[in-house]
Design a protein around this nucleic acid. Structure first.
Lengths: 355, 355
DNA sequence: CTGTTAGCGCCTTCAA
DNA sequence: TTGAAGGCGCTAACAG
């Protein structure tokens, strides 16, 4: 699929050397305006476009950014990739896109594939940023990358994310303020991921601060054609002492849980209040609307690209950048049923701790 | 960001020539099992992975597929790209992803960028497939591509789509069967696109078949931060003779129109019935749920890649492949209000004309 | 200001 | 079975 027109074709047509053609194209050195004109005409007439391959062979760098995400089907990742694409394009780069389909084992292989394509750098969402051989390898080889959505423990790795713990802390606070006392924590896949850990941590801290007993995450598989979570949740939501609220580690999981609760004959929010995390559009449209944490997903994608270029071009060091989030109220989060009658909420949740 | 390990490093370590290393790696010629073993050990120890650039310079083809879509933010395109990615990965290829942000003028530039990267082929969703200089150029240069979502008039261009006219015909039929007589047709951007034309055509045919007057498409800009369509629709939906139903050329537009109607004090579906096109998940979750045409978006992406490889490897010629769709009933499409009392629906809509 | 030339990493004849 | 060498398209260092 390559054009037959090379820099040599242009040089012949313009009656000069290939070096001059290269100089004109890249403005890498001054050229006489007369020759330049001839070259430009030749380029235009032949429809010449320099091969990125040839250039890359020399510079050892393609003008592409490698992307690894779990799945494009999740609107959260689709939005951040959209942000990356726009920002990359503004900088003359293209995305090489790959997805793990939520199989962390595929991360290493995909990264290798991308590196073999001599990408300028990588944008990754991995299962666990804190304990990850693939990232260690990239560090060792000095290959630039920025994590997105992941929240590494230390600034040793570049990342763009939100303060996950602060967000679930605020969300849990809202539930407690609404009178809930027994609040379950439901986690999707990647429950061992850094995000999930952080999110559970914020939940736990909020519960303990209110003198309530935090619960261990209930792990659910929110993907694929899994019939439903009803069976998995039946035990937890049986009996009088059942949770009156559930915090889900992400929005897609929350939607799925909402369906499962309905199957179990429980009404949201009358019997059980629900909240998610991410802020996907779907949550806004459903009825009742989903209470969640709104994250600036698209902006995170843009920011990740900006940060990657800062590392690439200005030699900036890695750091974790936390973007502001907002609590999004929703119909799925209501006052706790009877028994636990809330007084006036002791401390209303701060909508956005980080401005 | 390239590794420092080249084929030469491996050759030194294995104590042989680079030609032999190449032969072992690609099994392009027989090698003694002893040397082969040494090479494989060296490759493993050094973590060597042959550069795609070097290979491509020789073969003039990278193992990448170029993708151009309007926007990843629309779940329809996100889903088809997800399908492409999976299928491409299964075939050892990666996607080079770009988006036009709904500016048809950008198509040419993006395609050029991708071609300059020596992609093996292209997967495109363009504004208008029937009248498109960029596609003409690709044809002229013999660069393989498959359109997706587009529905070209002739088989001269390879495409994977649904039968847009049949789908809107069926949908319009459902509205007529529900007693609607004045049905508006609302089109989003790309209203001059092949898809939009086909869809309007199906609507028109169904209206005429029922002895009703089809209306010209009302063009709306459903994108960006556009305040709302309320102003644009105020005239159309004023007065007693206003439409009792509206067909929107896609789901995202339908969601936006639903909001606008609400602003105008009109209830959906009590005052106005609504239907979309595509079958995005959002439509299912909203309340009332959106009546629409369900299209096998992900499968279309996979199929497009399959078709591209068939052209690339088996020299197959271009053809338009229409995948089956289904009518999805939804709460937004109800019986027409009072005045127009439907007798028993004359001809119930056929849910899926193409199986 | 311009031309010549040496690679970049790999594959592929051509010889040995 | 293996090695040496040329060349893919381009950039950059060096002459002129």
């Amino acid at each position: 699929m390559a054009r037959i027109v090379t820099i040599r074709t242009v040089a012949e047509r313009a009656g000069c050397s290939i070096a001059t053609v290269s100089r004109v194209i890249n403005r890498s050195a001054p050229t006489s305006s007369e020759v330049e004109a001839r070259v430009r005409t030749a380029v235009a007439e032949l429809g010449f476009r320099p091969s990125e391959i040839g250039r890359a062979l020399k510079t050892l760098r393609m003008r592409t950014l490698g992307v690894v995400i779990p799945s494009l089907t999740n609107p959260v990742f689709a939005a951040s990739v959209a942000g990356m694409e726009g920002e990359a394009r503004r900088r003359g780069h293209t995305l090489l896109l790959t997805a793990t389909d939520y199989e962390p084992g595929r991360e290493a292989e995909l990264v290798e594939t991308l590196v073999a394509q001599n990408v300028a750098g990588l944008l990754l969402t991995v299962a666990d940023a804190d304990h990850n051989p693939t990232l260690d390898l990239l560090d060792a080889e000095g290959i630039a990358y920025v994590l997105i959505h992941n929240e590494p423990a230390a600034d040793a790795r570049a990342a763009v994310c939100v303060d996950n713990a602060a967000a679930t802390h605020a969300l849990t606070g809202a539930m407690i303020a609404a009178g809930h006392r027994r609040i379950a924590y439901l986690a999707g896949r990647f429950s061992t991921s850094d995000r999930s850990r952080r999110r559970h941590e914020g939940y736990r801290a909020a519960m303990e601060a209110a003198g309530l007993a935090p619960e261990a995450p209930v792990e659910l598989d929110y993907l694929g054609d899994a019939p439903s979570h009803a069976a998995a949740l039946a035990g937890l939501f049986a009996g009088a002492g059942r949770p009156t609220a559930a915090l889900c580690s992400n929005d897609l999981l929350a939607l799925s849980v909402a369906g499962a609760l309905r199957e179990l004959g429980l009404a949201v929010p009358r019997d059980v209040s629900l909240a998610g995390f991410d802020g996907i559009a779907l949550g806004r449209a459903m009825n009742p609307s989903l209470a969640t944490v709104d994250t600036p997903t698209r902006r995170m994608g843009e920011r990740a690209v900006e940060m990657l270029f800062a590392m690439l071009e200005e030699g900036e060091g890695p750091r974790v950048e936390r973007l502001p989030f907002t609590l999004r109220p929703g119909g799925t989060l209501a006052a706790a049923p009877k028994r636990a009658v809330p007084r006036n909420p002791p401390s209303p949740p701060t909508p956005n701790p980080r401005g």
